[in-house]
């Protein structure tokens, strides 16, 4: 009981803390299960993946990953027997299913598209958002409130509601199925979020710092660069993650506006199912790889993110 007497009245009791921890762990488990399942499915063979009851213990196989990155064709047993011995481990893996590798699949290319479009539009949205937010925060802008409302109002409907006009416009402008077109589109959707989030962060940086820099012999631009940006980096990191998550996961526009050239990973991954039966391990492998950049980016910016998302509450 001596422990209870030394804790602050604002602190929850030890049992309360344990209960809270239990809830958090339970919640984490529930949200992790689908992800873990996808990760495991990517390492199963196709029969294991659809086995009933589901297999939790299984022999891991890289078949899903091989299938993800290759195009294959099914051959007759006679043809298979006539082939020279396999030259690599993945050749061997494919031949067990009576198939031969005919070339690389388009997954790597789609994945690259996702990276270019996702990171490109995130960079642009955060860049434009930072400058606009700084302007709105620091200068007397005529009709400031109306402009800010207008910027926010672009998010009041789901972007896909304007799919038809955008589709027509993009066709007319030759932006359909181009990287530039997709970058512009995602930037446009994200920039309003970026302006609003970043304005909140920049508003919280006292003007005195910039003024001190001006008096210390710096120009306004240099003061922005040396004093405002370093202090806004928490907000910039948080904003960048939100923008990236949207652009990375976006499916509907990608499906509608891209096909051959600029298609991103989200509309591509489901197509894998069609190539040679229900290839769940390949889909799961694709999904796993698709998740990695966001996980990596989030972990990289983690210490900023925690402060950024709870902004206002725990600045300083």
């Amino acid at each position: 009981m001596s422990a209870a007497s030394t804790r602050s009245v604002l602190e929850p009791s030890p049992w309360g803390q344990r209960f809270a921890a239990l809830l958090v762990i339970l919640y984490a488990l529930i949200t992790m299960i689908p992800l873990v399942w996808i990760g495991l499915t990517g390492l199963k063979t196709p029969p294991d993946a659809i086995a009933y009851p589901p297999k939790v213990v299984f022999d891991p196989s890289l078949e899903g990953y091989v299938n993800l990155f290759t195009a294959r064709s099914r051959q007759t047993p006679e043809y298979m027997a006539s082939l020279p011995p396999p030259t690599s481990w993945y050749d061997e893996l494919v031949r067990k299913r009576n198939m031969v590798i005919t070339g690389p699949s388009r997954f790597a290319e789609r994945y690259m598209n996702s990276i270019i479009i996702g990171f490109g539009s995130t960079f642009l949205a955060v860049f434009l958002g930072t400058i606009a937010a700084y302007g709105f925060s620091r200068f007397k802008v005529p009709l400031k409130d109306d402009l800010l409302f207008f910027i926010l109002s672009t998010r009041m409907m789901p972007p896909i509601a304007v799919a038809v006009p955008i589709f027509l416009m993009y066709r007319a402008l030759g932006l359909s199925d181009t990287h530039l077109g997709m970058i512009i589109l995602y930037t446009m959707v994200n920039v309003s979020l970026a302006v609003w989030l970043l304005k909140g962060f920049i508003d919280e940086i006292p003007m005195e710092y910039e003024e001190a820099a001006l008096v210390d012999g710096y120009s306004r631009m240099q003061a922005f660069w040396k004093v405002v940006l370093p202090q806004a980096k928490t907000g910039i990191a948080a904003t960048a993650i939100f923008c990236l998550i949207f652009a990375w996961n976006e499916y509907a526009f990608a499906l509608l506006l891209t096909s051959g050239n600029a298609q991103t990973a989200p509309p591509f991954i489901p197509i894998i199912i069609g190539e040679g039966g229900l290839d769940w391990p390949a889909v799961a492998a694709g999904t796993t790889l698709f998740l990695l950049p966001i996980v990596f980016f989030t972990v990289l910016l983690r210490q900023h993110l925690l402060r950024g998302i709870t902004f206002g509450a725990v600045r300083k």
């Binding site: 005195e208 710092y209 003024e211 001190a212 820099a213 008096v215 210390d216 004093v227 202090q231 300083k316």
Partner: peptide, 11 residues
């Protein structure tokens, strides 16, 4: 040179 009332140092 200016010494401000508050927020005087670059954090």
């Amino acid at each position: 040179a200016f010494v401000f009332q508050q927020y005087s140092l670059y954090p």
